[in-house]
Amino acid sequence: MNSYIALLRAVNVGGTGKMPMSDLKDLFRRAGFPGARTYIASGNVVFTSREPEARIKAALEEALGAYAGKPVGVLVRTASEMAEVVSGNPFPGSSPSRTVAIFLDGPPPPDALERVTGRADEETRLGRREIYVHYGDGMGRSRLKIPAAAAGTARNINTVTRLAEMASEPG
């Protein structure tokens, strides 16, 4: 049994959002992933499965699409991959709340950072299947656009670290 993290893209699961956390856990159970645990109301789920990543992604995207009535992107990482994202953070001395990993389905294109627009004080680096961004003045005023990240989903390093910890804990 492998421990996985699912990161939902563009789904509001909190408060007045369209998908309460209890519904999200139930959806995972019905999709064949019992024991799913959520972390903060922003589409983060830790669970276990014997299935490979591609099969998990397809099953979850189908279930979420049926629930939402529209396509919902899901990015999946193993516990060890999530730990590598934490250890690979190229901005370890920077505020983890101002540093994000943008998760992608595959490796970012080699020219991904050359195509960035709207850069002010943000720093960017490529990861294995992530793009890291440190927002020096915070994300609120940033005009940064990263075309290679359009289908990705971002989580700050605090969240990534906690998800890696949860995935390494016994369910």
Score class of each variant (00 low, 15 high):
102 I>N: 04
149 A>R: 05
66 A>D: 14
83 A>L: 01
92 P>Y: 05
3 S>R: 15
71 P>E: 09
46 V>P: 00
133 V>R: 03
158 N>K: 10
39 Y>E: 00
31 A>W: 04
1 M>H: 12
56 I>L: 13
110 P>R: 14
83 A>H: 01
29 R>C: 06
34 P>A: 06
112 A>Y: 08
117 T>Y: 10
45 V>R: 01
46 V>M: 06
79 A>V: 01
106 G>I: 00
154 A>V: 07
30 R>W: 05
13 V>T: 15
52 P>I: 11
10 A>Q: 12
32 G>N: 04
158 N>F: 01
28 F>L: 05
98 R>Y: 14
78 T>S: 15
5 I>D: 01
38 T>S: 15
79 A>Q: 05
66 A>S: 12
84 E>N: 10
50 R>G: 13
114 E>W: 05
80 S>R: 13
25 K>C: 12
7 L>R: 06
131 I>Q: 03
147 P>I: 03
16 T>I: 03
10 A>V: 03
109 P>Q: 09
99 T>K: 02
19 M>T: 15
161 T>A: 12
159 T>K: 00
148 A>Q: 08
108 P>L: 08
80 S>W: 04
125 R>F: 12
162 R>E: 13
167 A>M: 01
22 S>M: 11
151 A>R: 13
2 N>Y: 09
11 V>Q: 11
118 G>M: 03
32 G>C: 09
75 L>H: 15
133 V>T: 08
154 A>W: 14
166 M>F: 09
84 E>C: 01
18 K>C: 08
49 S>D: 10
107 P>A: 15
142 S>G: 09
170 P>F: 12
104 L>V: 09
111 D>K: 07
47 F>R: 04
83 A>D: 04
138 G>A: 09
74 V>N: 03
93 G>P: 01
97 S>H: 08
81 E>H: 03
163 L>V: 00
70 K>F: 14
162 R>W: 03
72 V>M: 08
118 G>V: 03
102 I>M: 06
131 I>A: 01
165 E>T: 11
150 A>Y: 12
148 A>N: 07
120 A>Q: 12
69 G>N: 05
98 R>G: 06
122 E>W: 07
56 I>A: 06
9 R>S: 11
58 A>E: 13
127 G>I: 02
124 T>A: 14
18 K>H: 15
73 G>R: 11
110 P>W: 09
19 M>C: 13
62 E>P: 00
104 L>M: 10
21 M>C: 05
5 I>W: 03
63 A>E: 07
104 L>S: 04
70 K>N: 05
129 R>N: 14
20 P>L: 06
22 S>P: 00
148 A>K: 06
88 G>V: 02
167 A>I: 01
126 L>T: 08
61 E>A: 08
150 A>G: 06
97 S>D: 12
130 E>K: 00
111 D>Q: 10
67 Y>L: 11
170 P>Y: 11
2 N>W: 08
170 P>L: 14
34 P>V: 06
38 T>V: 01
126 L>H: 02
154 A>C: 09
14 G>Y: 12
42 S>L: 00
157 I>W: 02
47 F>Q: 02
93 G>H: 08
114 E>S: 14
81 E>G: 07
124 T>N: 00
66 A>R: 15
9 R>V: 10
122 E>Q: 06
66 A>F: 10
138 G>L: 06
111 D>G: 08
61 E>C: 09
